[in-house]
Structure formats: structure tokens, C-alpha cells
Design a binder for these strands. Sequence first.
DNA 1: CACCTCGTTTCGTACCGCGAAACCACGTGC
DNA 2: GCACGTGGTTTCGCGGTACGAAACGAGGTG
Lengths: 266, 266
Amino acid sequence: MAEAKPRSPPDRKFVTALSRGLEVLRCFGPRDRWLANQEIARRTGLAKPTVSRLAYTLTRLGYLRSSEATSKYALGGAAIGLGFAALGQMDVRRVARPFLQELSQYTKASVHLAVNDRLSMQVVDTYWNSASFVIDIGSRVPVATTSLGRAWVSSLPAPERKRILEAMRVARPADWPVNRKRMEQAFRDFDAHGFCFGLGDWRREINAVAAPLLLPDGAGPIVVGVSGAAFQLEQDVLKRDVGPRLLALLGNVRSGLSPDRELEGG
Amino acid sequence: MAEAKPRSPPDRKFVTALSRGLEVLRCFGPRDRWLANQEIARRTGLAKPTVSRLAYTLTRLGYLRSSEATSKYALGGAAIGLGFAALGQMDVRRVARPFLQELSQYTKASVHLAVNDRLSMQVVDTYWNSASFVIDIGSRVPVATTSLGRAWVSSLPAPERKRILEAMRVARPADWPVNRKRMEQAFRDFDAHGFCFGLGDWRREINAVAAPLLLPDGAGPIVVGVSGAAFQLEQDVLKRDVGPRLLALLGNVRSGLSPDRELEGG
DNA sequence: CACCTCGTTTCGTACCGCGAAACCACGTGC
DNA sequence: GCACGTGGTTTCGCGGTACGAAACGAGGTG
């Protein structure tokens, strides 16, 4: 939704129909598997017939599938294919794997690799050893209240940083005062140490530390984080042991990516 | 102006611009990370300015990102987000995990969970213990030459089966004679045992067995497969030990999914 | 049956997206 | 320096596409 500017858009390059179709796909969060036409219309702010046509198109292309009993849609196989095509191109994952595994073993905690998507961090790799608590691949966690998210925001240049904070404020005005305070603390942490903390404010009893990895290929920053039971990962441990190890890991990963084969699609 | 339109079907419901935009995204295979405007135009058969506009739109929405040096695009974070949103709704994965892990341990081989996307099988979960060869999450393998693909085709009703085979024939005419023979053998295997084999014809020295899991939620069949070194997983072992265990596993998974909470979105 | 609710189809019109051609921006050879 | 080649973007008028109000249809309920 939003973006509804029927009068003013001098942006002749922007293809509205495409944008709307993708907006329909975006409706499907992890929470809602089946959405009715009307619900999609409500969420996107589009007219019913429009949704009907877009959904029809998406279904024909395999991005949606419709329940037999009709009138409900769910994400289809093509959507998965698309996401994994994107995932497969992140050779960071391949390079980082052994390091992440090792760190996971050492810390006896979970190690995550995440990318940003709007106001969420999308976990694209997970390693754990005996942790009872697992953020699975595919999980999404909020930017605002996790170390993963804070590390990501911290790594952005000032203007983008500001845009994100503004978006956060608008999205959850009630939480903004506390979020803002925590975020500013995160910036200080990042400047001082190079990593950010998450101390029980996403989930009680879960502490975490995370740091961004900037790649030279123009992609958004990737974030690596360690999380585990608070009694095991006290802030002091995170700051003095886990955090520095995390930074060392990032250095290893960075040099593991051959620095000269950029933009080579082959 | 009266009369007919000789060209496209009068499918007033189909939104062309959306379809084209998604076609652009589809260009990006695992092979090609960066695509130039022209290359996209070539692959999709669209006119250059059209591609330019679609790419612009997709970039603004986060589905693509453009290299600094301009003129090249790669898949962006939103694409990943979309795929994982779809993935997160497959609670099969959650339920199946312990069983898959156990089977992986028992067989000392890799165990995969895959869904179909056109002529590929998309691996959405992987378990391995000490296997040297790993098909990672996100890998795609061909339908035609793998046990995963064969099991999937075997599970389809006759008409769809036919359609897929036809698509396979068109896509790779040269390989069709041998593929057809193998596929027919796969159908016989499936009828006889309930699973299909892959014996070194995708990768030498890799044997595999796979079986489909049909879920009551109207989704396409999901496929579970075991693969490993040929000398460890001889066909006889696959047929007499691993295969039956695989079927038992599917039974467990199926009953693990509470059979009555269908179509219930959040 | 009348009366909901929700999804799809119709249909005329506004306007959106299309693509030939012009326009740029870089490289490259001479 | 210039012509030339290549590859991407912008212009702009036209055709037809996608939009959405309203009509239609399909289930469900009293």
C-alpha cells in the first residue's frame, strides 16, 4: 500500500502493476498461510477486482496457489524458488560456514547469519550445538530489538540510518522512546567495540552480540550474531570474549572471499 | 477498429506487466549473479526500455539491487525475504526435522527435503553427518536425472505427469531418449516399492533414493531423499534397508502433522 | 425465500506501459 | 582529436491494458 499517488507521480519509470503484484505477495507473513481475497485487498489497500486479477496472475505463474475450496491463497513453489535463487548467490555463506560452526562450538551457543529485509532481519543460516533455543533458517526477527538488527543499522551510513529509524518510529510509535534509547546505545557500542548487544530485550533470558560484515559487492551488509542463554552469555563475556572472536571471524571471512572476483557472474 | 485480436488470448484477467516483472527476476539462476540490462532483455525477449523500467521498479522495491558501477543487477534482499516467508509456512520442515536427522545418522548419508519448481527440485532442508558431499539448502537439482525429481514426478497424477515429461523433452531434446527410459523405470520402481532411485546418473559415485510426501493442504508433493557415496549406498541396500526406512519416516511425519488443522491461517 | 457476505466478471474509460528512435556515457581504434 | 561501437536510459505519442464502479454469481443463514 502506501505509494498511492494517483495524481502526482512524474515517475514514468515506475511500473505500478508490478509493484502492486509484489505487494500482494508481501502480504503473506510467517503468521498467515492462507489469505482470502478480501484480506489481501484490505492489507494492500487495493480494490477487490484488482486483487482478484493480480492473484490470478500470480497463481498462474506459480507464486501463489489457491485452496481447492477456492477463495484462499497461499504462497506457491515459485516464491520459494525465487528466494533460494537469491540465497544461492551468497557465497558468503559457503565461506563463512566453517568459521560459524567453530564459533558455535566454542561458545556453545547459536550463531546466525542474517540479511535485512525492511524492518526485519532475515536469518539465512544457523548453527547450534546443543542449544535448546533455536532460531531456524528462515526466521525473521525485528530490527528494532535484536542485536542482529542493531548491528545492521549501525553499519549504515547516516542518512540511511536516519531513514530506518524514522520507519521504525512510524511502524511502532508506542515502542519508539525505548527503542530509540536502545538504538543510540547500540551506536555507541558499535563505535566503541565494533559490535552491538541484545540483552534480554527481544526474548527474556536470551543475550546476544552481533556485528556487520560489509562486502565489496555492493550488497547490503550481512550480519553475524551469537545468541544464547543469558546466564551463559553475560554481557561481560560477550564484550570481552565472544565479541572480539566475532570480529576476528569477520576478518577471516572477509579475507576468505577472494577480494578480486567481483562482478564476475560466470 | 473492430474485429479480433489475432495475438494474445483475450485473458482479461492476466496482468502482463506483473508477469513480465517476475520473468525478469526469474532470469537470475544460481549461475548468474550479475546480469546486465541487455542480457535480461535477451533472456526474457523483452524490449530494452521495458527491461529498464521493470528493473528500476524491482530495484526500488528491493527485489533487485544494482551494482555501483551501474548497469548490472543482482537479486536483492526482498527476494530472499519472499522465499523464506514461503518456506516458513512449511511446518512439515519442523515436524520432519528429528526424523530426518535420525535417518541421516543411521545411514551416514545426506538427507534432503525438496519441493518442485518447474524443472528443478529445490532443496529446502539438508542433514548430513560426515558426508564429504553436500547438497546445501538452496541447491537446485534437475527433475530429470535425480531420485528427488523422479519421486516427485512419480507422485503426480497422470495428466500432470505427462505435461512435465513433455516439458522435459522440449527443454533437453538430446537427453530425452535416455531420460525417458530412466523415468519409466522410476515409475515402475515407484509402483513396486514406493520410492525411486538415482544411481550415479546425476553425479557419478552418488547413489540416492527418494520418496514423495503428499500433504492434505493442497500443496505440491514434498520429496524426501537420501544420498551418499555409491559404494556405501548400493542399490541393494537402498532397496532393502534405506528405502523402507524412508517410507516409515514419511509415515511418521504424516501422522506427526495434526491431520485436522488445515486451512487454518493465523 | 429474502438477505447476507465475499469473490468474480463486465465494460467503458483513463491512463499506463510499450517500444522506435533519440539521447548519453564510455571505450577504443586510428 | 575525431569517428565509431556498445550498452543503458529517456522521450514521447499511441494502443491497448489495467483499473474500479457496478452488476453478477455463489454459498451460507435466518
